[in-house]
Design a protein around this nucleic acid. Structure first.
Lengths: 208, 208
DNA sequence: TGTTGTGAATCTCTTCACAGCT
DNA sequence: AGCTGTGAAGAGATTCACAACA
């Protein structure tokens, strides 16, 4: 088991777990690499390699034990103590994220939202307490938040990122259409919706 | 200039263009690969390679002509006749996308939205006409829509994708947390917010 | 002198192919 | 007989390093 696991592999493991959790609810006890691969849209060799990387082993003729595999992925990916997430910017996109994530993974939850709009502060939106921007550092420290989701306009994104990092956040998901720059070792995941649309348009065209 | 250009390169070109367009407004006439690279968060060699791939050439001591480079990227990526986009699912996420894209790129616009909710149909939301799901095929054909953005719940996503593809769409952006399967040559771009959050949480932890 | 354009080297990720196991 | 686990090969993407040039 290599000490470092690639970004791509982590992404696929997250997907495998979600698919496996669904299968488990339907009563699937064992699964072959080929089946999981076709659900995930990858090759069977890729699935076996990914699972090998986290140190789990299947059974050469029954395949992988669904429940055990889900647990192994969790052991590998999740912080046993849980991780807290903050969301900054409660616009349409922010609300969509809050609605989507609430109660989805017990060990990873959005515990605080922040916005400039006084009408939103102090309220509970989609089950999540909304604070004013001024309270950001205090709440991040108090709630031991390690991941920040940035859904503010482009011109505010870098400033918000700086404040998050200064307050101790080490993982950022950036939905603003500008690349962020983080000084210290911080994982930044840029999700650029503009680029996605332009890419899809380009390949839609070259697909013939 | 290679006949096929990678997904990654197209993504970066889209970003370069956005950055360059901003610089152009501020009056930057020429730019070196090093400056563009640092704005985009990549290496200078990467920028030069990407630009080489689209067949544009800079000047060995002034660098690249900003306006010409923007134009070259457009010549390479954009359909001269324009491309129309449909958005399916006008929830929080759908509204966020509509609000964000309206009027941003003249040659690539969301011309129709679709939703099941009768209260939304027939109205104009964020400047975009909203139709009922029953009208999907007719509108896609009539408006010559080639790209679809799926922002519906997971259990409806594959069905929506099938209908889009049958109506002639060749590029899909999928925000539902399930991998989509497209039968014929269609470019599918899965944007999985769950996976992004789990990835960011994992790397936030290993970043120490 | 300082930058671009690019072949070659390097690095990273994926797939092949088959030994080993049940 | 059929599947997993994995070394080795292959593909693809990035970076190096330097010739060519203004």
């Amino acid at each position: 088991m290599p000490h470092t696991i690639s970004d791509r592999t982590i992404g696929r493991l997250s997907l495998y777990r979600r698919l496996l959790t669904g299968l488990l609810r339907e009563g699937t006890r064992f699964i072959h690499s080929q089946e999981l691969a076709s659900l995930a849209g990858v090759t069977a060799a890729q699935v076996r390699r990914d699972i090998m990387n986290i140190g789990y082993s299947g059974n050469p003729n029954r395949g992988y034990d669904t429940a055990e595999l889900v647990r192994s992925i969790g052991d590998f990916m999740d912080d046993p103590a849980g991780q807290q997430v903050a969301l900054i910017g409660v616009g349409n996109l922010g609300r969509a994220m809050l609605a989507y994530f609430q109660g989805r993974r017990p060990r990873l939850s959005i515990v605080a939202a922040f916005d400039n709009d006084p009408a939103k502060c102090g309220r509970v939106i989609q089950g999540c307490r909304c604070y004013s921007m001024g309270e950001l550092e205090d709440v991040v420290r108090r709630e031991r938040i390690t991941v920040g989701v940035i859904t503010v306009p482009a011109n505010e994104a870098q400033r918000v990122a700086n404040r998050l990092v200064a307050a101790g956040v080490t993982g950022i998901i950036n939905y603003a259409p500008v690349p962020l720059w983080a000084p210290v070792p911080v994982h930044v995941e840029d999700i650029d919706m503009t680029t996605s649309l332009e890419k899809a348009a380009y390949f839609a065209r070259t697909m013939h």
